[in-house]
């Protein structure tokens, strides 16, 4: 009886682990797309209304889904509290995206944007934001391919891997 219970636990944990990893692959394209929309909105705030960055970040945050909104709200609040953009941006990145579906490559794009945001003319800012959006676009495509390839793989791997472990231990 104990053996059966142990096997069920292994099966449950293995499948769960597989589902979690598969979930990260499945969520990444959506998260990246949300970021692209946010950057597009930020570009509009900067180029058309020259809204100061602290206010622009908060305005973007008001109109977005949960995780991206939280990131922009934290960055905007940090900037309003007397940090430089780079500090506020970095702090928000650590707080909101350290444990997320985003890959290190995606975070590097955002981090690079943090170095240049707010410190040049409107035209320049627009170019930097567009570059970041294009880079994110490439990552979206890559993330979609990876999702198609790995979501099923990880789900099956979690289930089958735990079955294999059970047979080995039986």
């Amino acid at each position: 009886m104990l053996k059966v219970l142990g096997c069920a636990a292994i099966l449950f944990a293995g499948s769960g682990l597989g589902a979690v990893v598969a979930g990260l692959y499945a969520r990444r394209p959506a998260d990246l797309r949300a970021l692209q929309v946010a950057l597009k909105m930020l570009e509009t705030e900067i180029t058309y209304t020259a809204t100061p960055l602290a206010e622009a970040l908060l305005r973007v945050a008001e109109r977005l889904p949960h995780q991206v909104a939280l990131f922009f709200a934290r960055a905007g609040a940090g900037l309003g509290a007397g940090c430089t953009l780079q500090e506020a941006w970095e702090g928000a990145l650590r707080e909101c995206y350290a444990q997320s579906a985003l890959a290190a490559r995606d975070l590097a794009i955002l981090r690079r944007l943090g170095y240049v945001l707010g410190i040049s003319s409107t035209g320049d800012q627009s170019k930097h934001l567009r570059l970041a959006m294009e880079q994110l676009d490439l990552e979206v495509k890559r993330a979609e391919e990876e999702a198609a390839r790995y979501v099923k793989l990880w789900r099956s791997l979690g289930f089958l891997g735990s079955l294999a472990l059970i047979f080995t231990l039986w």
């Binding site: 020259a50 602290a54 780079q86 707010g118 003319s121």
Partner: peptide
């Protein structure tokens, strides 16, 4: 650099 960023609220583009 830091003073400029704090003076401009990191929004140089808004102060052209």
């Amino acid at each position: 650099e830091r003073t400029i960023q704090l003076v401009t609220g990191s929004s140089l583009y808004a102060l052209e």
